[in-house]
Amino acid sequence: MFQTTYQHWRSDFSSPSPSDNASINRQQFINLPKLKLLNIANNSIKEISDNHFFNELEVFRCDNNQMTTINSNVVNKLTNLQVLSASNNQLQTLGPDTFAPTNKMEVLDVSSNNLTDIDRANFPRLTNLTILNVNNNSLSQEVITCDNFNNLANLNILNLAHNRISQILNCTFAKLENLSKLVLLANQLEKIPPTAFDALTKLQELDLAQNQIRDIPEGLFNHLGELKRLNMSNNMLTELDLERLSTNVNLMMLDLTHNNLTNLNLRLLKDKFPHLTVLDIDTRLIKCDEISDILTFFDSRVKSCSVSGGCCRSVSGNTLTIIIGVSVTVCLLVAISVAIICGKFCRARKEPVIVFLPVPQNQN
């Protein structure tokens, strides 16, 4: 898969040292007609002014420059281009003819720019795309329309984090059946339609953190049978019935911190999530009897545990890890009120001593 090739290239093909190059002209590359990989990252380039470039180019990296636009007269002719990485520039829009009508583009990274629009004419030209990263821009729901995303059926990773998306429709992701990772972190979402994720049967990671979501509608996660990581921290949830996650039996990580939850039935963890390895919840949701039940249930799988920074991590690969933030006040109250009972219980059951350490509440 080309994703592996791309990652290998990113690690081996290091960026050049920063320089003061401000532009690239045709004469600099006139004798390189067979060039396949070009890295001009970490310069001060404001434009690529040539109207003819490299017909054989497959990987083009121009990150960390000062470009305000991608010259369509250049990129539009790159029919063999597979990777374009233009993050950390000053791009404001991707015009209608940015990419060649027929191309082999699999990876497009335009993260950390000033993008407010991606012309809809680009999406039918990106049918081979497997990775799309538009993180940290100013895009709204006008860009992630149903018609635009219907062309991206091969997409595997979609990063929409840190934008201005306030609405998702039932059809927004309806054609993204191969998606394995969806990041909607730090947008302006308040609600999500109950069937918005129905087509994402291969999704393994979903990040909804740092939005304004108040409710998880029934059925929202019903079709996400492969989901392993779910982050809903830093929202405005007031209640969450874990039964609504009952079809997510492969869930390994669940983060619910920094919401307005007042109650959570942790006992359901024993029956519903046999593969859960990381649980992150707020202090006020911890009830000693429920925690005891959970630890007892997982005792046969927890071989060795150490506590550091509020995290109880097992050294064995297939065991439970519970991450719980607990205040000093709670620790003192528990120690005073149940010291004798806990002492007898631990001696009788020979269970490991669990130490809760305070963790700052504003962790992401």
Rank of each mutant, 00 (worst) to 15 (best):
V59L: 09
N76M: 12
T93K: 12
K46V: 03
A22F: 06
L81M: 10
S15T: 05
L57N: 02
N73C: 09
R26P: 00
P16Y: 04
C62K: 00
L78M: 14
L78I: 06
L81D: 08
D50Y: 04
Q90W: 08
T68N: 15
I45N: 00
N65Q: 03
L78V: 03
D63N: 15
D63Q: 11
S19D: 12
K46H: 10
L78G: 00
N31F: 10
Q28W: 10
V75E: 01
L84E: 02
S19E: 03
I40Y: 04
T93P: 00
N21R: 11
N21P: 00
D20A: 09
S85D: 06
R26K: 09
S15C: 02
A22P: 01
A41F: 05
F54E: 03
S85C: 09
N21Y: 11
N64Y: 09
P18G: 00
S85M: 07
P18Q: 02
T79S: 15
N76A: 14
F54W: 04
S49D: 08
S19Q: 05
N21G: 00
K77R: 14
N71L: 00
Q28T: 10
L32H: 09
M67L: 06
E47Q: 15
C62N: 06
N80Q: 15
E58K: 12
T79P: 04
V74P: 03
Q82K: 15
F54I: 15
T93Y: 08
I70D: 05
N51H: 13
K36W: 00
N21H: 10
Q27C: 11
V74S: 03
N71E: 02
S87D: 11
R61V: 07
D63W: 04
S44K: 11
V75S: 03
S17G: 03
L38V: 01
N80Y: 08
S17E: 11
Q92T: 13
F29P: 01
D50N: 07
L35V: 02
V83S: 08
T68K: 14
N51P: 02
N42E: 05
Q92F: 00
